[in-house]
Simulated scan of single mutants.
Amino acid sequence: MTSTSEELFDFIAAPLKVFVGKGDNVSELSKLGKRELGFTFSFPVKQISFSSGLLIKWTKGFAIEDTVGRDVSQCLQHALSRRDLDIQVTALINDTVGTLALGHYHDEDTLVAVIIGTGTNACYLEKADAIIKSQGLLTTSRDMVVNVEWGNFWSSHLPRTSYDIDLDAESPNPNDLGFEKMISGMYLGDIVRRVILRMSQELDVFGPDSSKLHVPFILRTPLMAAMHEDESPDLREVSRVLKDILEIPDVPLNIRKLIIKVCDIVTCRTARLAAAGIVGILKKIGRDGSCGVAGGKARPKVGSQIKMKRTVVAIEGGLYTKYTLFREYLNEAMAQILGEDVAPYVIIKVTEDGSGIGAALLAASRSASSVVDAVL
């Protein structure tokens, strides 16, 4: 993560060679000729073509300066060549686009894909002539995938609290990824920790101040979820997390119940914000029951007939798949925002390994007939 570009991509290419070697007889592999590889690279890039992109900046703790500004597909391609692998990088995507590809492969009505895990992002299928930025580009495609990068979304209407503001200010990337810091698994546990810290300072409900409470990100979101979903009569899991992780022993039952309430409020807000983001995309493509696309006519009156098309939203990420209450809150919010006439036409489907299978599908479709535009 902090080495050189060559070492990083060699690190990727080495196990790939082992993997290919296990699955093929060497003589058989030579008959097949060059193979196509889909490369999922979930960092900000300037996409130059379907198979190449320049790294804009690293995130998630990576800091390999000599890669910035370079074509990451070429970097991997050189590493493959150094290991005599006759493999061509033919598709460069991120995990959100891979999720859309996988969802669309299984169900052609899949038009939106969302990642809600440690980080968060979304993408959707848009009419090419509706994308102002791409006007003038040579393309035969009627549709194009738009990678929203909604983690960077910001608006004065977002309900930021003092806990959100403090978390952002003390993070390694202040004033960046504002929406992600309110809805992704990387940050939810720390929001709860900050609330508990303030409770301990102002209400004196935990006894002596715990030094662990002052440690950023010590309360990870899976631990927060475990407390939130604790259904034992004496809330044993809440007590365990407070004692073992935050070093707050002997917390009374009524305070443990209060901790669950804090987790519930944070989770509910997160789920509803994520749901609003999804509905915002549906509105943009005219799939929210409105008359026309965003900026069009007003929503039909209650009781009027709405001609709706079925729309599938592919979702991947542990926050949605493993956190039951989060999932319930998000689905509930989607139904409330869309309304009873529209909600049945919007189906959420969970995908698995869009990063891997989705990239492979795109590479395969590119290889088979060069009609990836038709697949997406």
Rank of each mutant, 00 (worst) to 15 (best):
Tyr187Pro: 02
Leu338Val: 08
Val145Arg: 08
Pro44Ile: 06
Glu6Cys: 06
Val350Glu: 15
Pro15Ala: 04
Ser369Ala: 14
Gly117Leu: 06
Ile131Arg: 14
Asp109Ala: 15
Ala169Leu: 14
Ile259Leu: 14
Val205Leu: 15
Ala271Lys: 01
Glu328Cys: 09
Leu362Cys: 08
Ile281Glu: 00
Gly117Met: 07
Ser30His: 09
Glu6Phe: 05
Gly178Val: 13
Ser370Gln: 12
Gly23Val: 04
Ile281Arg: 04
Glu332Pro: 02
Glu247Pro: 04
Ser3Ala: 13
Gly296Ala: 14
Arg220Trp: 01
Leu235Pro: 02
Val346Arg: 03
Ser51Phe: 02
Gly98Cys: 13
Leu330Cys: 09
Asp373Leu: 00
Thr270Glu: 07
Ile348Trp: 02
Glu28Leu: 06
Ile255His: 05
Ile165Pro: 04
Gln77Arg: 05
Ile347Met: 07
Leu319His: 04
His214Met: 11
Gly189Leu: 04
Asp209Gly: 02
Leu8Ile: 11
Thr118Gln: 05
Ser81Ile: 12
Asn25Val: 12
Lys181Arg: 15
Thr161Pro: 06
Ser30Gln: 15
Thr110Cys: 15
Arg82Phe: 06
Val350Arg: 10
Ser49Val: 11
Thr161Asn: 06
Lys309Gly: 14
Lys181Asp: 05
Ile196Asp: 09
Ala63Glu: 14
Leu273Cys: 06
Ile48Trp: 01
Ile259Ala: 10
Leu361Thr: 07
Val205Lys: 05
Glu180Gln: 10
Arg70Trp: 01
Ser134Asp: 14
Leu319Trp: 00
Val97Tyr: 02
Ile48Tyr: 00
Glu149His: 10
Leu246Ile: 05
Gly277Asn: 13
Pro222Val: 10
Asp250Ile: 02
Leu138Pro: 07
Leu246Ser: 00
Arg70Ile: 06
Asp244Lys: 12
Ser184Gln: 05
Lys257Val: 05
Gln305Pro: 03
Gln305Phe: 15
Gly178Ile: 12
Asp190Pro: 01
Glu170Cys: 03
His78Ala: 05
Gly296Lys: 04
Pro15Tyr: 08
Ile116His: 05
Thr351Cys: 12
Val312Pro: 03
Ala91Gln: 07
Asn25Tyr: 01
Asn94Met: 06
Leu223Cys: 14
Glu36Lys: 06
Arg193Pro: 01
Arg310Val: 13
Met224Pro: 00
Gly277Met: 08
Val205Ser: 06
Leu258Ile: 01
Gly61Met: 01
Leu219Gly: 03
Arg83Cys: 08
Ser369Cys: 09
Gln74Arg: 14
Ser171Glu: 10
Leu102Tyr: 11
Leu92Arg: 08
Arg366Phe: 13
Ser370His: 07
Leu325Asp: 04
Leu54Phe: 09
Arg269Trp: 05
Tyr329Trp: 15
Ile348Cys: 15
Ala14Trp: 03
Arg287Ile: 00
Cys268Gly: 11
Gln305Glu: 12
Leu177Thr: 09
Leu100Lys: 03
Leu167Val: 01
Thr120Tyr: 00
Glu231Arg: 15
Cys291Lys: 10
Phe217Asn: 10
Tyr163Gly: 00
Arg82Thr: 07
Gly21Leu: 04
Leu282Asp: 11
Phe50Ile: 07
Ser81Arg: 12
Gln74Gly: 12
Ala113Phe: 00
Ile259Cys: 09
Lys301Gln: 13
Ser156Glu: 13
Gly292Pro: 11
Val45Phe: 00
Asp244Leu: 09
Leu253Met: 01
Arg269Tyr: 02
Ser365Leu: 07
Tyr124Ala: 05
Glu36Cys: 10
Tyr320Thr: 08
Gly21Val: 08
Val372Trp: 01
